[in-house]
Simulated scan of single mutants.
Amino acid sequence: MFNFDWKRLGVAAGLSLTLIAAGCGSSEEEAESGAKEEKSASEEMNYEITGIEAGAGVVKAAQKAVEEYDSLAGWEVSTSSSGAMATALGEAVENEEPIVVTGWTPHWKFAKYDLKYLEDPNGVFGGEEQIKTMVRKGLEEDKPNAYQILDQFQWTADDMQSVMLDINEGMSEEEAAKKWIENNQDKVDEWTKGTDKVEGTEVELVFVNWDSEIASTNVVAQVLMQQGFDVTITPLDNGPMWQSVAEGEVAGMVAAWLPGTHGDLYEQHKENLVDLGANLEGAKIGLVVPKYMEADSIEDLNPAE
């Protein structure tokens, strides 16, 4: 009654098995591809953390992280400058490419881009930091009004970031500082409270050439100028900055990140300078990535193969 075409049935069965096998193979390939894609961000970055100046505390911490985290095995910390780091970050964000940078707050990049700190389970980068004011010994006796203004200087991360962002968007450092002072005269009045104006008393402040310290030092300098001081501000590397204050060559600085970033330099020079305390609370350092990256922790990165 039934007339089977066994040859045709065999071909159909073979074709079905081929399709099933192809489907399985496709799933396996997709799984393998997915695994590769998870690693592709680290591979695309050439297992490199984009750093700032060699010797900076956040760079030293990043180098320590490379040694301590298995996920960073084979990685390198590339050092350059804070400006070069910011440029590389901006280019990566514009093209939605992966990047890991040595970061800190306050910084204008957090106001301009959607960024996040990678979690640091091992605590390599430490907790919150303070930015402190350090002056030379004898400043209180020699220039009491300058000493008091520096002692009373205190502001917030939002204050600092607003000045940094104006500078980044093209305003000169002096103009940005003057703009902030004009809009925050109540805070400035607290810094100058109880002081007298002077006529041409010379004051030199030093700072490390980071966007945050450019902002704070220019603001303080403008306030001192308004009080009649003849102010010079000088950018230096981290070591010479601390040394110049400790040796009494300059009046002081408002750029001391503690306890982590400048901790070793503070220990080296603390007996030869005066610590006026924090001018900003809640600073932080760590590894920073754009929010579009899937990694949320340093441990989510992949070691070099």
Rank of each mutant, 00 (worst) to 15 (best):
W155D: 00
T156I: 11
Q63V: 02
D114K: 08
T133D: 04
A21F: 10
L280A: 15
E91W: 03
I181E: 00
V11I: 15
N184T: 11
E53G: 06
W104R: 06
L89A: 03
D166H: 11
K36M: 14
E28R: 08
V58N: 02
A13S: 11
F207Q: 11
P235N: 08
E182W: 00
D151A: 14
A31T: 11
G252D: 11
D300S: 09
Q226M: 12
E44Y: 10
L205Y: 04
N184F: 01
V100F: 10
W108S: 08
K187G: 01
L224N: 00
A54L: 14
N272Q: 12
A61Y: 06
D296T: 15
A246Y: 05
E67C: 03
L301T: 07
L258T: 14
E202L: 09
L72Q: 08
D300E: 05
F110L: 07
S42L: 07
G277F: 09
D230R: 13
K197A: 12
E44V: 01
W180R: 01
N95D: 13
S244E: 05
A61K: 15
A73V: 00
V101E: 03
E169S: 11
L15F: 15
G123E: 09
S71G: 03
D211C: 03
V100Y: 05
K291Q: 15
T105A: 08
S80A: 15
L118P: 01
T50D: 03
